[in-house]
Design a protein around this nucleic acid. Structure first.
Lengths: 179, 179
DNA sequence: GTCTATATAGGGATAGAC
DNA sequence: GTCTATCCCTATATAGAC
């Protein structure tokens, strides 16, 4: 699974062969079929696993507090979690179109759950009077797109630590939905 | 070219065969080689063409005015331009890894030029005292990610017009880099 | 400029020996 | 549980007729 994830992230699902994955772990291609029924299932398991782990990790975060506090927690959590597993993020985002329709629907449903939490935080902030988003649904999509984008340029060897990146993005997110 | 772009956007470069592209326009696969030397060149021409057209369209926009006015123009331009050609945007973003190293370097250079303009607008705003970005380079990447994300959810048949979307995003962008 | 036919390579998946 | 060998299919790209 790890080898497949790495190769899919680097070259794309369709461009990676079962033979390449097998070679990466030192077996012949046929041996992989003792663990997975087919290549599509392999991709689906990786993507569903990533989304379920994301939701599970998110569910462990505090749910109380002000909308502003919850928004900050969401922002910092998202950046930390995504920067820690760039391959899974990349594959889960780029290979949606490689999923069969039924598998796509499942992964899309999980993604939707994640987006919904942010939307509800923004709505709560609006009700509180502490936040202001012209359209909470779109603001949620905009914030997630902005935050996820960090995975495209961040390098651990670069000039910024994850903490610093969190701070910069939190500053922008906070202002973008401020009253 | 149009058929290839559409198919690449839908299924991915590696997943689309020359036979599929040929069938889409009603010829046999071999006939395509009268127009392109190979499949890689086809992808490269599409991506370079998109980035060069983007830069050319951007170069025609007004360059003077306050940083705030230039930021608003950049924001609205980006959304309008990208929503008008979702397939080209999608392919140019998702298929970077399908390019040969030399072709990747060219496309990446063009993309960098586009990002640089936004970064320089933010720096000008900082100098003017009208904008405030903790880190102009990262703020530029964050804003572009946020804006480009609109292509993943926008549907012309949905509840919002492009004008309304522009307004919502401009409001968020403006606030996110406000003093 | 397009066709048919093909060269050459590699794909996913399975069978059966060990 | 892995191997070798293979089935069957499809891929990119080219050759040569028309």
């Amino acid at each position: 699974m790890e080898a497949a994830l790495r190769l899919f992230a680097r070259h794309g699902f369709a461009a990676v062969s079962m033979r390449q994955i097998a070679a990466e772990v030192g077996v012949q291609a046929g041996a992989l079929y003792n663990y997975i029924p087919d290549k599509q299932s392999l991709l689906f398991d990786l993507m569903r696993g990533h989304m379920e782990a994301l939701l599970a990790a998110r569910a462990e975060r505090p749910k109380g507090g002000s909308a502003l506090a919850r928004l900050e927690d969401f922002t910092r959590f998202h950046i930390r979690y995504h920067l820690a597993r760039p391959d899974a993020v990349f594959v889960s985002y780029m290979e949606l179109r490689s999923l069969s329709p039924e598998n796509f629907a499942v992964v899309e449903g999980l993604r939707r759950q994640y987006e919904d939490e942010l939307e509800s935080i923004l709505r709560a902030g609006e009700a509180e009077g502490s936040l202001s988003a012209a359209d909470p649904r779109i603001a949620a999509m905009a914030v997630i797109a902005m935050l996820t984008g960090v995975t495209t340029w961040y390098r651990a060897a670069g000039r910024l630590t994850v903490d610093q990146v969190e701070g910069i993005y939190w500053d922008m997110v906070r202002k973008s939905v401020s009253v």
